[in-house]
Amino acid sequence: MSNPSESVFRRLQFYTTATYPCSYLPGRMARSEVAAPTHLVDESAYARLIEQGFRRSGLFTYRPACEQCQACIPIRIDVQRFQRDRTQGKLWRRLQPILPARLAPLHWDARHFELYLRYQKRRHPGAGMDQDDQAQYTQFLLTSRVHSEMAEFREDDGTLRMVAIMDRIDHGLSAVYTFYDPDWRASLGTYGILWQLDYAARLGLPWLYLGYWIGESRKMAYKSRFRPYQILRGGAWTASPDGD
């Protein structure tokens, strides 16, 4: 008897988008490979796509398909073997007691949107994501057909400092997007990843998928500081090149 999830996966088709300006490396053009139709990307198919280097943006599941550039390398962190380095450990001990997370299903919250806009305008100005467009925000982060959830990080007085969107699959968590207070005093982006690693460990999941590592991009190179990690090259996940 055939596996229903295998049948669904085989019905997926893949198309390549037109070129568009790369959001990571200035002066370069990018293309993406997109899985379609989107309604067939159920949780089982999505898990297989994640393992093949795809990511999710709203209802679209994609991976880079640039002809002249292979700078975007899928990366995942080994949750069970992960060890915080000295700086990460110090940050975790400082923030974990004062900035706890509360899990919630995806939902609209005006305070989230205000924080998102402040984050985009400060950290990614001119990238097209800093517009006061509720529909774009909702489509990008709050629309999903898989097991998605958000973690809200608030101080004791209720002040919102960070929101992390995650997808849960059978072999890990996929970190979809995190935005945070750009004026706060601590390294919230690093803390967000540390929290997701801790959450995945509590769930007994082996991997945290962090999307793409781009060595040439300062904004993306930080991902290789979480070790040990694996990268996807030639269709196979391999240990980090420095041997960790």
Rank of each mutant, 00 (worst) to 15 (best):
L91P: 00
S2C: 12
P105F: 03
L91D: 04
R48F: 02
D85I: 11
G128D: 13
G243Q: 12
G58C: 05
G126D: 06
R11D: 11
R76H: 09
R48C: 08
I193R: 07
R161D: 07
T17P: 05
R76L: 08
Q196I: 01
M1I: 13
Q88V: 06
G192L: 01
A36I: 10
F60S: 14
S23Y: 07
M220R: 00
P97I: 07
V79L: 04
V176A: 08
Q83R: 15
I165C: 11
F9S: 04
D183P: 03
E43P: 08
Y177D: 06
Q52T: 10
Y209K: 02
S44V: 09
Y46V: 05
R233A: 15
L106A: 06
R102C: 14
A175L: 01
S144W: 01
D181W: 06
L25C: 06
D133T: 04
T178H: 03
Q134R: 13
W108K: 12
G89F: 05
F82A: 09
Y212M: 10
E6S: 14
Y15N: 12
R122Q: 15
F179V: 02
A35C: 10
G126A: 05
P37Q: 01
A200Y: 02
Y222D: 04
Q136P: 07
P74E: 06
T61R: 06
R86Y: 07
V34A: 03
Q83I: 10
S240L: 09
L25S: 01
L106I: 11
L12N: 03
P125Y: 07
S7A: 13
Y15P: 11
A175Q: 06
F14L: 01
Y20Q: 13
L59F: 13
A200N: 03
Y180I: 03
C69F: 11
Y199L: 12
P21L: 00
W108G: 05
R227P: 05
Q13D: 09
H171L: 11
T38A: 15
V8C: 09
Y212E: 03
E155L: 15
L59V: 11
A47G: 09
Q80T: 04
Y212C: 03
H147N: 14
Y24F: 09
D85L: 10
L160N: 02
P182L: 13
D244N: 15
L160G: 02
L205T: 07
V163C: 09
Y212K: 02
M129F: 15
A71H: 00
G27Q: 06
A30G: 04
Y24N: 01
P74V: 02
D157A: 03
K121M: 14
A47E: 01
F60E: 14
Q13A: 12
Y137E: 08
P64T: 03
L49C: 08
E216K: 11
S7N: 14
L141H: 00
K121R: 15
D156L: 09
L115H: 02
M29H: 13
V146Y: 00
Y222P: 01
N3E: 13
K90S: 10
D242V: 03
P105N: 04
D156S: 14
L142G: 04
T159M: 12
R55T: 07
K90I: 09
F82P: 02
L208R: 01
W184A: 13
L25V: 15
